[in-house]
Design a protein around this nucleic acid. Structure first.
Lengths: 336, 336
DNA sequence: CTGAAAGCGCTTACAG
DNA sequence: CTGAAAGCGCTTACAG
């Protein structure tokens, strides 16, 4: 409407629209004179190109979609931050979508991203089947999975090798004398839920600890399920002396209920959480964690996506995880 | 290119592109027969309209821009979540921009939002002058300020009445016997930094407590400055016995350094933080906070923005704040 | 109720 | 190096 268009810039500079476009896009086939006058006109009018028109014409939107299960989860907030910064420095704007832990909302966002014609999508998928993920692939939209994978979708991914950290945690707890470790698992509909559960099962077996299936509670990566898990595990006839929570939100729920029950973490019960959140080090006692680098994950996901956009077929990346021992798990059980 | 367009849908349905468009947009001037055939064709082809073409033609992008200082700050992550959900239910997609506490990056994002022709912008501004905010207004882009205002910009806003909560906190601390309260302030370049500082100054005077200017440390709302603030305040010849931090991240920095110095929060020194973060209740001792509703803030900001988009001139909204006393500040100083 | 046509703001071969 | 023109995928008066 009253917005400044390239036509206004061209008119003020006294050149054709085509020439104005060439100057503005840095096309070398321009004269010094044209460059100067167009630049001056654009500056004078404070011209901002219509990104929609550019995208429609050039079939490139210079935007990426990032779909996370929950932005309020600090892990995904950090992931969003890392990916957004990496995208920005490559000239891409990031459209952040929040599935809000709902497959339906994820599917709606996927359709939105298709409609917006984003140049690529990074997704930490919610739900067991891919849902509308398939529509993305049918349209050959460059896509990279992050944190989680989905069976049946052969896509580049950036994930964490949860196994190493979990084995370290189990061995560490065994060394403190714990024989019954309660495990608050992620949902088995997610790859991380399955992988971490399998790693826990195997580590417990290797360490010769109790494989009592009652020691496993299946949560949903939300705080409330961490509370419920602690509740259930402590009600067992033979309750665990140590707890391992498969993500930070469930650990938060666990801590909350342990406090309410008057149990001292690190003394009455040991606790280790997957995900290294800044705040965990501030708790009293400080929380032992299985750390993995969310900054690397976000940055590398963007790198892989840019490679896919460039027509390459990058290999998936698996990042390491590592136990960080703090006071919540460092007391031998005999002293507890 | 190989994407399905409305032309394909029209061809398959055996109608003109115009009729297909009318059916797809719910225009009542269509026959039952046309509606049926176009709907079937669209479903069969899994047609997703090109949002760029729609926006270019209709001058409405059905997208909102949300610019926050830092997504990793839980307050703004929650704000983003609330605004995004509210926008979504009104049919808008939210483009989340992260200024990363930099005016320059904020300005770049503002230009991007202009280029993308978002239908409106919600911004928690970084920096003292508006920067490119003025460009937004010159283009008459509907804009709402959230959390913070900027002098000289008459825009609808949703902010917190920090004064009530801060006065409650100061009175509460005075009632426990504290006479020297250390204040870790937000930057004076932000409206919240100024408002909260002014509220603190006044409350301290009203309560008859020490107005020693050395008791105020000016931070930048980041964790590191909270640490630095505690450090500076405790090095005073006559150090404070209670601390009030003007946001959650500075409180986190404060807690970290208090732990490192071996000081017991709530016993050796009282601590109250502005912003009610879920985690604060889990600390041991639980942290007293000045709470305000970030959900309301995000939701109302979207409501106001939709009103501005509709051509109305909504009044600004000021939300309440309130002290929540927990263990970190509940011990009388005589017992400490 | 429907089709043909113009046009949103750009970019990009095509001549010259 | 430059201009004129076509066209990206839609929507919307305009006739009929």
């Amino acid at each position: 409407m009253q917005a400044v268009t390239i036509k206004d810039v061209a008119a003020l500079a006294g050149v054709s629209v085509g020439t104005a476009s060439r100057v503005l896009s840095g096309n070398p086939a321009t004269s010094a004179d044209a460059r100067e006058r167009v630049a001056a006109a654009a500056a004078q009018l404070d011209y901002q190109p219509n990104a929609q028109a550019q995208a429609l014409r050039s079939a490139r939107s210079q935007s990426l979609g990032l779909l996370v299960p929950d932005v309020r989860n600090p892990f995904f907030a950090d992931l969003a931050h890392a990916a957004e910064q990496a995208g920005l420095s490559a000239g891409y704007v990031t459209l952040l979508g929040n599935a809000n832990e709902s497959s339906d909302q994820q599917d709606r966002y996927l359709d939105t991203l298709i409609s917006r014609r984003v140049d690529g999508v990074i997704i930490a998928p919610v739900g067991g089947d891919g849902g509308r993920l398939r529509a993305l692939l049918e349209r050959k939209v460059p896509t990279v999975l992050v944190d989680r994978t989905v069976p049946g979708f052969r896509l580049p991914s950036v994930t964490t090798d949860s196994e190493t950290g979990i084995r370290q945690a189990v061995q560490h707890l065994a060394a403190q004398g714990h024989t019954r470790i309660g495990y608050i698992s992620g949902p088995q509909a997610t790859s991380t839920g399955r992988d971490r559960f399998a790693a826990f099962t195997q580590a417990v077996a290797e360490a010769g600890l109790s494989q009592d299936p009652e020691l496993v509670y299946f949560g949903d990566y939300q705080a409330a399920s961490g509370s419920a898990g602690v509740h259930a595990l402590l009600e067992l006839a033979d309750p665990p002396t140590a707890l391992l929570a498969a993500d930070s939100l469930m650990a938060v729920g666990a801590i909350s209920i342990l406090h309410r029950r008057g149990l001292r973490i690190g003394t009455d019960v040991a606790l280790v959480a997957f995900d290294d959140i800044e705040w965990f080090a501030l708790l009293d006692p400080a929380l032992s964690v299985i750390a993995h680098s969310v900054e690397d994950m976000g940055r590398i996901a963007v790198e892989l996506l840019l490679q896919v956009i460039a027509g390459e077929e990058p290999a998936s990346v698996v990042l390491p995880s590592e136990l960080i021992v703090r006071a919540s798990s460092s007391l031998p059980i005999s002293l507890a």
